Amino acid sequence: MWAEAALVSAGCLLAALCASVAGFAFVLVGAAVLLPFLSPALVAPILVTGSLIVQGIGSWAVRDAIPWPRLGLYLGAALPGLPLGLAFLALGPARWIVGFVGALLVLYAGYTLARIALGLAPAAFAGGRGADALVGFACGVLGGIGGYVGALLGMWADATAMPPRETRALMQPFIAIMQALTIPGLLLAGLFTREALLLTASAVPALLLGAWLGLRLGRALPAKGFRLLLLGLLLVSGLFLLV
């Protein structure tokens, strides 16, 4: 139990640090560390709860910059996607959808990083309410499949040249609310076992430390550094989804 607690704390510390700087990737980073050693049924409640705590802290830190109308649009579009994602999970094609998204993230992040390395100006896409709603819906589907609600939104934020603070102010409350909606389903599924609760509680100091370090680093990180970190996390997230 002590070894598992140390592993969970280490994974949550790293995930909290990344999520607090970039605004997303807590579940993906945490899963990459924990799933090789712990069962998915045990990891899921730990990461969803940890993500809610960290993104809630991050949301409070950027509360003055939260774009409420746009956030409401994303949430409204994501909610119908959640049950569809759960249906895909039950019926079988979820693995193909996750693999497609993983490939999309790898291609986008790899292409954009290559353009930056070559000194070429990255192409920016024009956003809009329709495109935002479509991205929000897709995030909801991925949330239903496995709680992967942030990666696609992170890619869209970069593609539309959203500034760092605005990116975090949109992504962190969006992810926090989506994770809060996921927790009742995990409770009904009986995944919040005594072991899961104890491991989650043991990781709270690491979560708080990671969030604190990430927020400090995020404030000091220049826009170019933030973008490189965001793209790096998108690339790693895509590779993880492809495995």
Rank of each mutant, 00 (worst) to 15 (best):
G146I: 04
W60T: 11
L86R: 15
F226D: 04
P40F: 02
M178L: 15
P164K: 12
A77W: 01
R168K: 14
F226R: 03
A15K: 00
A124F: 07
L197W: 10
L14A: 15
A126R: 15
L89K: 11
E4A: 15
P67W: 00
P67H: 00
P164R: 10
G150I: 08
P173M: 00
L82P: 09
G143S: 12
G23D: 01
V29E: 06
L7I: 08
V106T: 06
A151C: 05
Q55D: 09
W60F: 15
G185A: 07
A169D: 05
R70A: 09
V29T: 09
R227A: 03
L213K: 03
P67I: 00
V141I: 14
A61R: 14
P93M: 05
Q172S: 05
R168G: 04
I177T: 09
P163L: 09
S9Q: 02
A138N: 11
L217W: 12
L153P: 06
A61F: 12
T182A: 15
Q172N: 04
G150A: 11
L213R: 04
L47M: 08
V54R: 01
V141F: 05
L73A: 07
A161T: 01
K224F: 12
V101P: 06
L79H: 02
A32V: 10
P184D: 11
P222Y: 08
D64G: 11
F192K: 08
A10P: 07
W68P: 02
D132A: 13
A157Y: 04
V54L: 05
I145W: 00
G11V: 00
L120M: 13
I97C: 10
L191C: 03
V21D: 07
R216W: 13
E166G: 12
L38H: 11
Y108A: 03
P164L: 11
A157R: 03
A123T: 12
G130V: 10
L14C: 13
T112Q: 09
S59K: 00
A220Q: 13
L71T: 01
L113R: 07
L181T: 05
L118A: 15
L142P: 10
L239K: 04
G50P: 00
A16P: 09
G119Q: 07
A94F: 03
G23E: 00
L235R: 11
A31H: 07
A131H: 05
F100L: 15
G140N: 07
I97H: 03
L89V: 10
G146D: 04
G238K: 06
F240H: 15
V236H: 09
G119M: 03
Q179H: 14
A201K: 06
G92M: 02
S20C: 06
L91F: 13
L142H: 07
Y111N: 13
A10L: 15
I66F: 02
L47S: 02
L14I: 15
A90E: 14
S39M: 11
G136K: 00
L105K: 08
M1E: 11
L75A: 08
K224G: 11
P69N: 05
L229C: 13
I66Q: 02
D158I: 14
P93S: 07
